[in-house]
Design a protein around this nucleic acid. Structure first.
Length: 953
RNA sequence: GCGGGAGUCGCCAAGCCCGGUCAACGGCGCAGGGUUUAGGUCCCUGUCUCUUAGGGGUUCGUGGGUUCGAAUCCCACCUUCCGCACCA
């Protein structure tokens, strides 16, 4: 067993400091960043994936000679940590035992976790240690947190700049709200950790005779043209309240909801009215200007909406059923109901003129109390919302798809009704309770700050930035384009949580997805702050304007912020050197938010030459086939995994379990087998050591060529972040080559020099993926320095590489054919005779190969190509040969075809020098290599190029 | 509904972008053999089907199409996973 812990710590010591990068005009730079972590828990395998990918990228670029800046920071901004602190303070045993038992937090430290910053610091250190232990080659000199004073200055500068550019706007916005605390609630504030989710109802003010208003709340404002009557519950009391300058009749439960809409005071104006007393009144539908009657319905609920409902019997099953109930019951209301006909206003494929009526009839609904009405309503709503079109007679809505009409109708009604409240909200997952026990309501904040991502010019700019960068893998680009299309206003500040105060409105804190959009530019600054060369307190807008945007002079900026001029100039030049971001790595869950905001904000803030160059998106990680659950049950903390299995085995397991975009299934089996593979590679290198000598055999030359070829393949795979495949080439691919080389070297012995060179190259190729093991191998081989600081193995082929590789393919293929014959014929052999195809056949093969590469691969084209070549024309007569040779060519790999075109291999010579010893050694048989016409064997004529005729005796 | 991913020989899972070594990498399972006191580990062989001198047939969600040739490209459909926000 390899002792990973001691190997890893040994190499970490040796590497210390080598990852720090500074501006160096003589070298090409690469700025590689990963989304910084949120320190509210230790990192697990899933987090490890993104960071490992980025680290491989950074290590690879470094070995290729690039000056790589790969920094890290910690995102303290946000509310979850605050929520945790509050729960700790209130003694939440569930959370505490989770922290202690699953996350391994020492119990004596729990009390200090009542302070959210202490929580963040704790997990910050935890995560940082894990990153170091995983061998990530992070440059820590620019490390910061998002609540550092200097970072806050940076964010203040950023939001002021965004406001100057006109993208920060104020508006109203509904949130879950605790009336007792007068504070917004989100998931971690609620009992049972429920995320408040709500739906919007449009208020339609039905004007009763005498000036009173009966407001109906509806989720389908587009159906207002189909209203035939209004519903009230006859058994309910309706409160009289003054709202927006008129007297409204609403359910008592509605009063508090109205008062949270930020639409002025809601005052009681007298005693309540019984629903039954409203029946029969005439109400005017706003906008449509149609008079309808108020009718009684028992399905109307006091706790939903306003307590009054508009009736659209053509499109609402409840309304349809309630009218039918009235008709049957008779009386005055029944008379009115009988006179009502459904008004169809939406046409939907596959539905008739009375969609609700048809559904109700088909289901055999007996009354408005039927429970199936709920389901029917949902079905019809979904069908019409997604597939319906507004019919003529619906004013400006006519012809619109229903889903568009919904928004348009809400807007139009708001205009008709002049002034708020226009909409009200209900929790869709009610009831929701605050942790203090109070029932929550939906509250409208009218002074909410937004970043307005909806602006057309900004979108155009962002699309240009997206078009100019590389998305890896390319399949993700359409998803970005789609997101860019629907991005709208986004709340950019909250009233609680850690972070930076809005400079112009101190009650608000910049929200976490808004203070993380251009922070990569701040890494350059933070290194100067950490080094004590900049005073965090004195950093001001003039400073950031200069160093990040090049505005003004270093002298002016220095004067303004009190730093010395050279320092400011140096920050500016470091920034100019390292920006733009060459590669941004993150999980795909950040595509619709962070990564999109990252592009938008860069496009707006920075000049085009500083726009990001590449985004790399990876899928998530499953544990043994299952999704990692937030309940922490199957989450393995990364540090624990490193302690138990070693960093490199985990790195390999993460990398080789899936290609970039797919969900990686993390299996301990894979970790263990990776560990074994690395162990055997290390011990093989130890066995080879630094010694060796002797002449290089053809097999040795071949091995060198194979290593060069592999290096080229691996490079191009890493460039496309196809790391799984790259790892396979380094591990399995070279394994097979080394095994073949061992077979070939067995008869003659030797090969030690070539072997050592091949293993050294292999160690270097492995280094980005498994850096500790690679350096251990490198050292065993007696190489200078470290694999991780060595130059990436050369991949350019030497002159005769193609011929070497091709000859060896021929040898291997003939050997495998011979063995196959022996196996299937169940015979032994004392002599194997090979007949190698003659000159005319070779010529014909080349002609056909070129023709096939040119795209014409049918027999007819082959015949024509052969006819056009004097040296090969004669072979046309041998139709069987042409047919078989064509299928040989077509079934060859692209690589092999390329080698056949490029390489000038002497088949017969390859068999004599390479195959004969192998046949003698492994089969104990003599190999005779003859020309096609020699020896007159029965099979000789069937020889084809790279497919010799074989006779076993 | 929209956007994206995925459906492969018992299971997991490569290949698909760049159509032809694809009956289709690899692992698990299963069968046989070796190592071993035994078990485990480890090694070898086999694992759609018919053959038995390096071979043929039928397969890669379903149905069409393009092509000399399709798991791979195009179209339609079915199934399934993820996202559609103000949360990091």
């Amino acid at each position: 067993m390899v002792d990973w812990a001691s190997i890893e710590s040994k190499w970490r010591e040796r590497w210390r400091g080598t990852e720090v990068a500074h501006a160096d005009a003589s070298r090409e730079k690469r700025f590689i960043t990963v989304a910084y972590p949120y320190p509210n828990s230790p990192q697990h395998i899933g987090h490890g994936r993104t960071y490992t990918l980025a680290d491989v990228h950074a290590r690879f670029e470094r070995m290729r000679g690039r000056n790589v800046l790969f920094p890290m920071a910690f995102h303290y901004t946000g509310t979850p940590i605050l929520g945790m602190a509050e729960r700790i303070e209130s003694g939440d045993e569930g959370l505490i035992s989770g922290l202690v038992d699953l996350y391994g937090v020492p119990r004596e430290r729990i009390p200090e976790f009542a302070d959210p910053v202490k929580i963040a610091r704790y997990f910050h250190e935890e995560i940082r240690s894990g990153m170091v232990e995983m061998g990530y080659s992070i440059d820590w000199s620019g490390e910061f947190t998002t609540i550092d004073p200097a970072y806050k200055k940076f964010i203040a500068w950023q939001v002021r700049l965004l406001r100057e550019r006109g993208v920060i706007v104020q508006g109203s916005h509904p949130v879950g709200w605790c009336p007792r605390d007068s504070n917004p609630v989100s998931q971690h504030d609620t009992r049972g950790d429920v995320e408040p989710d709500f739906v919007e109802y449009t208020i339609v003010r039905l004007a009763l005779e005498g000036g009173r208003v009966l407001p109906a709340a509806t989720m389908r404002p587009e159906t207002v043209y189909g209203v035939t009557n209004a519903w009230v519950n006859p058994d309910m009391e309706y409160a009289r309240v003054r709202v927006a300058g008129a007297e409204w009749l609403v359910a008592p439960e509605c009063i508090s909801k109205l008062s949270h809409l930020d639409a002025g005071p809601v005052e009681s104006t007298g005693t309540s009215v019984r629903g039954a007393d409203l029946v029969g009144l005439t109400a005017r539908v706003p906008g449509v200007d149609r008079d309808v009657r108020v009718l009684p319905a028992t399905f109307v609920r006091a706790d939903v909406g306003t307590g009054a409902v508009m009736s659209v019997p053509a499109h609402a099953p409840y309304d349809c059923a309630a009218l039918e109930d009235l008709r049957r019951a008779g009386g005055e209301a029944g008379e009115i109901a009988r006179s009502i006909r459904p008004v169809q206003i939406i046409q939907t494929e596959g539905r008739g003129e009375d969609p609700a009526g048809e559904l109700v009839a088909a289901a055999g609904v007996a009354s408005q109390g039927d429970e199936r009405l709920e389901g029917l309503t949902k079905d019809l709503y979904a069908a019409e919302y997604y597939g319906g079109t507004m019919l003529p007679g619906t004013g400006s809505l006519a012809g619109m798809p229903a889903r568009e009409a919904k928004e348009a109708a809400a807007e139009w009604l708001a205009g008709e009704q002049r002034g708020p409240p226009e909409a009200m909200y209900e929790f869709s997952n009610a009831p929701i309770f605050c942790r203090c026990g109070t029932a929550c309501v939906v509250h409208v904040l009218s002074n909410q700050w937004f970043i307005d991502y909806s602006s057309a010019e900004w979108k155009a700019l962002a699309r240009r930035a997206l078009g100019a960068l590389e998305v890896v893998p390319p399949e993700m680009r359409p998803e970005f384009e789609h997101v860019f299309g629907w991005l709208r206003e986004r709340a950019c500040a909250r009233q609680t949580g850690l972070g930076t105060a809005l400079p112009w409105d101190g009650g608000w804190t910049v929200e976490s997805l808004s203070d993380s959009v251009i922070y990569m530019s701040y890494y350059v600054v933070s290194r100067f702050v950490n080094a004590g060369r900049l005073d965090p307190e004195s950093l001001d807008d003039a400073f950031f304007d200069h160093v990040l945007l090049g505005r003004g002079s270093a002298r002016e900026a220095a004067a303004s912020c009190g730093a010395d001029e050279e320092t400011v100039a140096e920050v500016r030049s470091e920034f100019e050197y390292f920006y733009p971001v060459d590669s941004r790595h993150s999980g795909r869950d950040l595509v619709p938010n962070h990564l999109s905001f990252f592009v938008f904000n860069h496009a707006l803030v920075f000049p085009e030459r500083h726009w990001p160059r590449q985004i790399v998106v990876n899928g998530s990680v499953l544990m043994e086939g299952k999704k990692m659950s937030k309940s922490m049950s199957n989450i393995i903390p990364l540090r624990q995994a490193v302690r138990e299995h070693g960093a490199d085995p985990i790195r390999l397991a993460i990398l080789s379990s899936a290609e970039l975009l797919q969900d990686a299934d993390f299996k301990l089996d894979l970790v263990r087998s990776s560990s074994r593979q690395l162990e055997s590679m290390i011990s093989e290198c130890a066995r080879i050591g630094s010694g060796g000598g002797g002449e290089a055999s053809p097999a040795d030359e071949w091995l060198g060529a194979r290593v060069r070829e592999t290096a080229g393949t691996v490079s191009s795979l890493i460039e496309r972040m196809r790391l799984r495949e790259a790892v396979r080439h380094v591990m399995a691919g070279l394994d097979a080559d080394l095994a073949w080389h061992a077979r070939r070297a067995a008869p003659s012995g030797g090969g030690a020099v070539a072997l050592r060179e091949a293993w050294a190259a292999r160690a270097a190729l492995l280094s980005p993926f498994a850096p500790h093991a690679a350096d251990e191998m490198w050292e065993s081989l007696g190489m200078d320095g470290t694999a991780s600081s060595s130059a990436w193995p050369g991949s350019s082929a030497r002159g005769d590489d193609a011929a070497l590789l091709l000859s060896e393919l021929a040898v291997a293929s003939a050997m495998s054919d011979i063995q196959r014959i022996l196996r299937s014929a169940r015979i032994g052999a004392s002599r194997v005779t090979l007949h190698v195809a003659g000159q005319a056949k070779s010529r014909a093969h080349d002609v056909m190969l070129r023709a096939a590469e040119g795209g014409a691969a049918d027999i007819g084209s082959m015949m024509r190509a052969l006819g056009a070549d004097p040296g090969a024309a004669a072979m046309r007569r041998d139709a069987a040969f042409v047919k078989r040779t064509l299928s040989d060519i077509l079934s060859a790999t692209p690589r092999e075809r390329r080698l056949r075109l490029e390489g000038d291999a002497d088949e017969a010579a390859a068999y004599r020098s390479g195959l004969a010893p192998l046949v003698a050694h492994e089969l104990g048989a003599e190999l005779v290599v003859l020309g096609e016409g020699e020896g007159g064997g029965p099979k000789a004529a069937s020889a084809r190029p790279f497919k010799p005729a074989i006779l076993v005796e």
